[in-house]
C-alpha cells in the first residue's frame, strides 16, 4: 500500500476463487465424481498461507457459503469446514511457509482430513452416509495436487505481484 509500485491486484485472488468454484461443479462422468479434488481447499490454503493479511476468515466464510449454494448442501456446511481449515492454516502460516514441499503436502493431507471429516460428520447427522469409503478419495487426490497447485498459484502471484 505504501509502496506505489506494488499493485494490489485483487482480481487475481477473485479469479482463482471463481476458477476453484467452476472446477468444483464442472460436470464429470458419474464414475469420476467421487474423485473430484477439493479445489476450494487448495485455493484457501494457498492464500491463507501466503497472503494472510488479505485473505482471512471472512473471505473464506463468504466463499464457503457460495460453495454451499452451488452444491445444494446445508447452508454453512462447506463454510464451516473451510473456516476450520483456514483457521489452522492462519495460525501456523509462518511455520508451514518455510516447510519443504513434501512437508507442506503432509500438512495439506491433515487439513484435508479435517475438512472431509467435518463434511462427513454433518452429512452423517443428516443421514446421508452413502459411499463412505469413496468419500475419502478426494483427500488423497487433493493432497497429491498440492505441490502443482502451489507452484501454479505462486507463479500467478509473482507474475501479477499480488501482495
Amino acid at each position: 500500500m505504501r509502496n506505489p509500485i506494488r499493485r494490489r491486484a485483487n482480481w487475481v485472488i477473485v479469479v482463482t476463487y471463481v476458477a476453484a468454484l467452476l472446477l468444483s461443479i464442472w460436470p464429470l462422468p458419474d464414475w469420476a465424481e467421487p474423485f473430484r479434488p477439493a479445489w476450494l481447499v487448495l485455493t484457501t490454503v494457498y492464500w491463507c498461507l501466503f497472503l494472510p493479511h488479505r485473505v482471512g476468515l471472512l473471505v473464506t466464510f463468504v466463499v464457503g457459503i457460495l460453495m454451499d449454494s452451488l452444491t445444494g448442501s446445508l447452508l454453512g456446511e462447506h463454510a464451516l469446514a473451510l473456516l476450520l481449515v483456514a483457521w489452522v492454516t492462519l495460525k501456523l502460516h509462518l511455520q508451514i511457509r518455510v516447510y519443504p514441499w513434501w512437508q507442506q503436502t503432509l500438512v495439506v493431507l491433515s487439513l484435508m482430513l479435517l475438512y472431509t471429516f467435518v463434511l462427513f460428520w454433518v452429512d452423517g447427522m443428516l443421514g446421508y452416509t452413502q459411499g463412505s469409503l469413496l468419500r475419502w478419495m478426494p483427500v488423497l487426490i487433493t493432497t497429491l495436487l498440492w505441490p502443482w497447485v502451489m507452484q501454479l498459484l505462486s507463479v500467478l502471484q509473482q507474475r501479477y505481484q499480488v501482495s
Partner: peptide, 19 residues
C-alpha cells in the same frame, strides 16, 4: 491477528446457526 479467537468463534457460530 488474522485468526483471532473471537472472530473465529463468531464465524463458526454463524455457520452452525445457519445449518
Amino acid at each position: 491477528n488474522p485468526a483471532g479467537a473471537l472472530r473465529t468463534l463468531l464465524l463458526v457460530a454463524v455457520c452452525i446457526a445457519l445449518m
